[in-house]
Amino acid sequence: MDISDEVEAASAGSRRAIGRLLTRVERGERDLEALIHPRNQAQIIGLTGAPGVGKSTITGHLAARLARRGRVAVMAIDPSSPVSGGAILGDRIRMDSVLGEADVFIRSMATRGSEGGLSAAAPAAFRLLDAIGFDVIIVETVGVGQVEVDIAAAADTTVVVVTPGWGDAIQANKAGLLEVADVFVINKADRPGASDTRRDLELMLDLTATNDHSWRAPIVATIGTSAEGIEELIGAIDEHDTALEAQDLRGQRRRARTLLEVRSRVGLVVESRLDAALETEQISARIDSVAADGGDTLALVDALTELLFGFSDP
């Protein structure tokens, strides 16, 4: 089957064709680009949060319900090992148990060297899924720490999931993950501490400067095991989506997505060149020498920058 046949079959709903095309996207195949005709119709919902907060379960619940109103795809991202390049992609197992009979397309993606909580190919995958007719794309990021916030550039609505006992008001006011939330979820809300967590988040939001585009992230309590709060979460996501539309921000979201895709892909190229340069005999010897006898680390940085880009920033 050639690529244009695959695109046709994928648009008609063939699981296998969609699966193969996503592989081509991950490989960055050039031939595919000309065949992706954006509809700009898909709503992209991102879920992020620390490992173990229940992202996959909530994603499964959301997908099952949203599948009643359109075609839903889930992109589940898990980390590649920086050592072997391999990955264990284990999100499906949690989604399957809550999806029931819902017709949802799930693809697991490994980060393959990207560090922002997504795979560099993720935005391109969203473009493809939009083009072949998906109405909703739910993206689950890797379990993140505090600063992996690429999802905010990639999604229309970013949902940040926390759990009771995740931290206090000081944690809430640190920069990073919490700044990018369009909607907060306090999952496992039947556990002790849920009201303290809500209070800390409210306090943080009170201190957040507002402007004409102000959107105060609503806080939704959920219980993954019983699907409690999921309808309310969908309501909050829809409300944010309506606000984006009303403020005419969709074009801006698409631009952010394009920027992210270009930046991540170029970033990977630059990083692999840097890694190669670090392994050259000349640079490696200078690193040995600085490590052993001290020396000018910044001069070494300048030398490497010069080597990579042909100039160094004084």
């Binding site: 699966g19 590649s80 992609l89 499906r92 399957d96 697991s108 490994a110």
Partner: peptide
């Protein structure tokens, strides 16, 4: 390798579906 871990109690149908989606 990239491992898509499906775990327990799968059927031939659920495995085929996963293989297709995951290529």
């Amino acid at each position: 390798c990239e491992v898509i871990y499906l775990g327990l109690r799968q059927s031939t149908e659920s495995i085929i579906a996963a293989v297709e989606q995951e290529d």
